[in-house]
Design a protein around this nucleic acid. Structure first.
Length: 475
RNA sequence: GGUCCCAUCGUCUAAUGGUUAGGACACCACCCUUUCACGGUGGUAAUAUGGGUUCGAAUCCCGUUGGGAUCACCA
C-alpha cells in the first residue's frame, strides 16, 4: 500500500516551530517511501478560528518546499480537505457508531459532567445516560432535546498498540474517558474527526505529538468498533524552549515567520528542526529537503524532548549564508541596505565583505552603522597597543595616507592595499600603523567588517578623502 | 492524585553488552590576518542515582530521584 501521511493543523494562528517539524516528519515519511503528503485543515472548533491562519499555513509549507499532493486548494480524490465541510459525514458515522455499540447519546450538560469529576482523586464521569435504552435515547433526540454523542468504553483489561518511536504501549481501558465525539452543535471533536478522516483518507502513518500517546487507545477502539484497521503511529516528542517548557506561541516564542523576519533562511530553519529529535546516523549536518527525502527514516526519531537552541540555528544559518552564490546573498541583503543607507556606496563590494561576516541577515544594520555617517569618536580610539598606534602616529600617517589615496588610480581593494603597503615601507612603519588609523578615521569604530582598504572601496574615493579630512581636522 | 512517557558533555546527538564514551554548536587557546569575521589546529566538558543480571553494562531488569504528558462539547 502506498504510504500516505497528513499534516492536519487547526487554523488557530501562527505556524510554530514544533508544528512545522511535525509537518516535516510527516512529509519525509511519505516522500522517503514515494508516498503522498496530504494537507487537511481541522477547523471543527469554530470558536478558535483565526482569519488568515490557513494562508499562513499554505505560505509556510510552500516557502520551505514541502508541497502537498492533496489538500483544500489542490483537491484530491478524498476531499473535501477542510473538516467543517465534512460536517454531515461525521454525524452519519457518529450515529452509526451508536448503533454498533461504540458510542451513546448523552443529554447531560457540560457542568453536570464536570461536577462529577475529580482529577486529584481520580474520579471519572459516570455517564447516567449510558443506562438509557437506545429506543428511549432516540426518542429524546427525536423530540429535539440537545445531546452529544459520547464514546462508550465497553472493553476491560489492557489495551495495547505499537508506536514506531515509543515501542509497545499498554494502557488499561479503565483509564480511558468516555469523551464527546459529536458536540451539541453537530460538529465532531478532534477525537472523532481525526479517526474518521484518517480512515477515509487512507492515511497509513499518523504522526503527531506524544501528548496523544495515552488517548490513542480510545481511537483504536473506534477503529475496532467500525471494523477498520488503525494506521501506524509515530508519536514524536515535543520541541522545548527549556527543560520545563514547550515552545509555544502563547509564551511569545519565535515562530517560523518571526525567524524569517529576523533574517534566518527558511532552508536553514528547516534543516535545523529536522535535526531536533532526529539524526541521520552519520555525521553530516547540512541537508537540503531533497537530501532528507532520500535518507529519512522514522526509526532514527528520538524519544526525548529537544530544546530549541537558537545559537546552533544561528550557526547553521551562517553556513547557509556563506554557501549562497554571491549574487543571491546580495539580493537578500539589498532590502537591509535600503533601509539603512541613503548614501550611494559600492553595495556589490559591501556584500562581498559582509557575506562571511553575518550569520543572520538581521545583523546587517549593526554591521554597517558607520557607512551612512562616520560614528562620533574620540582621538583616544587611535591608541592600539598591538598595532603600535596612537593619536600622534595617526595624525602623521593619515596625512601621508591621504596624499597616496588622492593619487590612487586603482580604487580596488588590492590596489589600495598595495599602495598603502608601499607607503608603509617608504615611511618605515608597520602596515598596521597606516591601516588602523585609516579604519578609525573612515568608520569611527575599532572593529569593522573588512579592513581599512575594503571600507575605502565601499565608501568610494570622494567620501573616503572627505572622512580623512574630517579626521585630520580633529587633531 | 491515577495512568503513561522520558533521562549521555551547558545544548543537539552517536555508540542497540566489549570504544581512550564519538561528532556538532557554544566556550577557551593557538595559527592565518590591515581590525572583525571566514578558515585551520588543539582543549575544557557527559552516561541522574542505588541495586541487580553478566567474564564484561551508557546499553538488559528493579527501585529511587528528577522532568514531561494526560484526565475539555481544544486540537
Amino acid at each position: 500500500m502506498k504510504t500516505r501521511t497528513r499534516f492536519a493543523p487547526s487554523p488557530t494562528g501562527y505556524m510554530h516551530i514544533g508544528n512545522l517539524r511535525t509537518a516535516l516528519y510527516e512529509y519525509l515519511i511519505a516522500k522517503a517511501q514515494g508516498g503522498d503528503f496530504i494537507l487537511r485543515i481541522e477547523d471543527t472548533d469554530q470558536k478558535r478560528y483565526v482569519e488568515g491562519a490557513t494562508d499562513i499555513i499554505y505560505a509556510t509549507l510552500k516557502r520551505v518546499g514541502m508541497n502537498w499532493d492533496e489538500g483544500p486548494d489542490v483537491g484530491g480524490e478524498y476531499g473535501p480537505y477542510i473538516q467543517s465541510e465534512r460536517k454531515s459525514l461525521y454525524a452519519d458515522y457518529a450515529h452509526k457508531l451508536v448503533e454498533l455499540g461504540g458510542a451513546h447519546y448523552c443529554f447531560c450538560s457540560k457542568v453536570e459532567a464536570d461536577d462529577q469529576k475529580d482529577e486529584e482523586q481520580n474520579i471519572k464521569f459516570q455517564d447516567p445516560c449510558k443506562r438509557l435504552s437506545l429506543e428511549e435515547a432516540k426518542a429524546r433526540v427525536a423530540a429535539g432535546e440537545p445531546y452529544v454523542i459520547r464514546q462508550t468504553i465497553h472493553k476491560k483489561g489492557k489495551s495495547k498498540y505499537h508506536d514506531e518511536v515509543y515501542g509497545d504501549i499498554e494502557i488499561d481501558y479503565d483509564e480511558l474517558d468516555e469523551g464527546v465525539l459529536l458536540k451539541s452543535d453537530g460538529m465532531p471533536t478532534y477525537n472523532f474527526a481525526n479517526v474518521v478522516d484518517d480512515h477515509l483518507m487512507n492515511i497509513t502513518h499518523v504522526v503527531r505529538g506524544n501528548e496523544y500517546i495515552s488517548s490513542t487507545p480510545k481511537y483504536n477502539l473506534i477503529y475496532e468498533d467500525f471494523g477498520w484497521e488503525h494506521p501506524h503511529y509515530v508519536h514524536v516528542p515535543p520541541v522545548m524552549k527549556d527543560a520545563q517548557h514547550k515552545l509555544s506561541k502563547r509564551n511569545g516564542d519565535a515562530s517560523f515567520q518571526d525567524l524569517v523576519a529576523k533574517g534566518y533562511l527558511p532552508e536553514a530553519i528547516l534543516n535545523y528542526i529536522a535535526l531536533l529529535g532526529w539524526n541521520p546516523g552519520t555525521e553530516q549536518e547540512i541537508f537540503s529537503l531533497k537530501e532528507l527525502e532520500q535518507i529519512f527514516s522514522a526509526e532514527r526519531l528520538n524519544k526525548s524532548p529537544a530544546i530549541f537552541d537558537i545559537t546552533k540555528l544561528t550557526w547553521m544559518n551562517g553556513c547557509y549564508i556563506r554557501a549562497l552564490p554571491a549574487e543571491e546573498f546580495h539580493k537578500l541583503a539589498l532590502p537591509y541596505y535600503e533601509k539603512a543607507l541613503a548614501r550611494k556606496v559600492n553595495l556589490e563590494f559591501l556584500s562581498q565583505v559582509l557575506q562571511p561576516r553575518v550569520e543572520t541577515l538581521g545583523e546587517i544594520p549593526a554591521q554597517i552603522d558607520f557607512i551612512e555617517n562616520t560614528l562620533a569618536f574620540s582621538n583616544d580610539l587611535y591608541t592600539n597597543k598591538k598595532m603600535k598606534t596612537d593619536a600622534a602616529v595617526a595624525q602623521n600617517t593619515l596625512t601621508e595616507t591621504r596624499a597616496v589615496l588622492a593619487q590612487a588610480a586603482d580604487w580596488s581593494n588590492q590596489g589600495l592595499f598595495d599602495a598603502l603597503k608601499a607607503l608603509a615601507e617608504k615611511l618605515g612603519v608597520k602596515n598596521g600603523q597606516i591601516l588602523y588609523p585609516l579604519r578609525i578615521a573612515l568608520s569611527g569604530k575599532e572593529t569593522t567588517p573588512g579592513g581599512a582598504t575594503e571600507i575605502a572601496v565601499v565608501l568610494g574615493k570622494e567620501e573616503t578623502l572627505r572622512r580623512i579630512d574630517d579626521a585630520l581636522a580633529k587633531f
